[in-house]
Amino acid sequence: MKRVLMICAIITVLTTVGIVWVLFSESYTFFQHVSIWDFLTDTEWSPLSTNKHFGILPLLSGTLLVTAISMSIAVPMGIIIAIYLSEYAPKKFRYYIKPLLEILASIPTVVYGFFALTVVTPFLQNYIPNLAGFNALSAGLVMGIMIIPMISSLSEDALYAVPKSLREGAYGMGSTRLQTSFNVILPAASSGIIVSIILAFARAVGETMIVTVAAGNMANLTADPRETVATITAFIVNMSSGDVQQDSIEYQTIFAAGVTLFVFTFILNSVSFYIKKRFQEKYD
């Protein structure tokens, strides 16, 4: 039995190492054709046109734009729901609503994508002129809704775990429920909440189907949510599903984009890890 477990562990590690190796070796060939400087500073991404440009910035900005929109929905909503469930809702209600919320997270993301494309975008077009058929806004909003339960569920666990004695301390000094929630319970649970936000962020950056379906596939250096954009993930999907010749420079862009995503999430995780540690020092 011990052997079997050992082999499983080794397979997992080898797979990971293999993925990273392929990623970096393929991009190595890519970076022999395109300098890293051009890759990071060129403001155009057009690997398939005759006048080829390989600047990652438009894909990066597309990714960040959609992620920012989704987080601006998911963070406040997720935390408010968590506070409501932990501090206000009757026990029964909490018991039933939590699994229900988690269902939101188990809907296939392609369904969210089509929901964004065929329901949200046409609806928003009534109010926002110049909203493109494929746009960052709808994709971001719907992704935000999808991510809410990730934040609310983990944050609620963190809030609920705050000792009863702290609540009593706050109530005993004449705090209202709202004051207790925001001034005492929320800071006490902050490290857990930050973790939930980090995980949600990572999920948003890596999310693929919603953006592929609803945000379009046009590398576009913009901060305007009404426009069509392409994220790194959406580009990878589109490029891999098209018929590009293996070992061509077009094919290798997939790996260059993949490496960018990898490095990007890696930096994010490190930063958040650092923040998390600092908060923990402060609070427990």
Binding site: P163, S165, L166, E168, G169, A170, Y171, G172, M173, G174, S175, Q179, N183, V184, P187, A188, K282, Y283, D284
Partner: peptide, 28 residues
């Protein structure tokens, strides 16, 4: 409860600074 202070069996300071703990009642 503002007129009646309460001290509990187990010390339960808030996870804030010493200053913030004492200032809490005034701030709310």
């Amino acid at each position: 409860r503002k007129k009646i202070g309460m001290v509990f069996q187990k010390p339960n300071p808030f996870p804030k600074s010493i200053f913030e703990n004492v200032a809490y009642g005034l701030k709310i």
